[in-house]
Amino acid sequence: MRSLEAPAVQRVARGHRMRLRWGRIVIYIVLVAFALFYLMPVYVLVVNGLKSFQEVSLSKMWAPPSALSLRSFEKAFDKLSPNFLNSVSLVVPATLFSSFLGSLNGYILAKWKFRGSEVLFPLLLFGMFIPYQSILIPLVQFLRWAGQYLPVQLYGTITGLVLVHIVYGIPITTLIFRNYYASIPNDLVEAARMDGAGFFGVYRHVILPLSAPAFVVVVIWQFTSIWNEFLFAVTITSNPAQQPITVALQNLAGSQIVEWNVQMAGALLAALPTLLVYILLGRYFLRGLLAGALRG
């Protein structure tokens, strides 16, 4: 397996026919065309986010703002910043817990198979595929019921939302870790066991040190999906002081007057953390995929 960045020496062989000049030009034209296609919506968001409410209108969508106005961004920031923090205190614990839970489950299902574990795995996986809007009512009823027997309320709180995301994160995180761990040779595990390592010893000394690529994939995946999730957030947290940013973003639009410029600015602000995660960790995401984290 080669490194991701593919040093030139290694790649020469594959590219030799394509080195014809016009061939390269076509490649770049296609790539640039697609890049423009992907960037087009961002342009619209930025340009209209910089306009004032009076100026923003459908017919002048591509025109740059007549005067640079940061008002929309300020307004969006004012309204969104408390919810931004809520999102952070939702996403960080939920992502970390569900990653570790997935890692543990994956480890058990890959390296500690027991009778029936081959059946349990697909059963766990199936949870990934349910349409979430269909289980909202039983979910709310269950959270309320369970909250009575616990020291913390589950319904209406970030804690409850964290729990929900951890539970519905189990299938995907388990899948990624199990597939990744399946590619770690059993010999390594056996050798550690010979040396007297038990369940936790093997996990700590053999599995965990090798887990970084899978963790990156899982963390990115969970981080973005939890950050962007709307339906659970809006149904489970009713107190605006507890609501994550997706709900607040939606609330920037009233039922009767929508300030598109503020919405666009807000959308950009709300997307910043996930964009940062992708730009900073994108390389490792690919590396994690390469290492087999998301391969069937």
Partner: peptide, 17 residues
Amino acid sequence: NIFLFPMAISFIVTGVT
């Protein structure tokens, strides 16, 4: 990165845009 970044954006924002 350009090809991958839309994944970071929520479906709601994509839809509106």
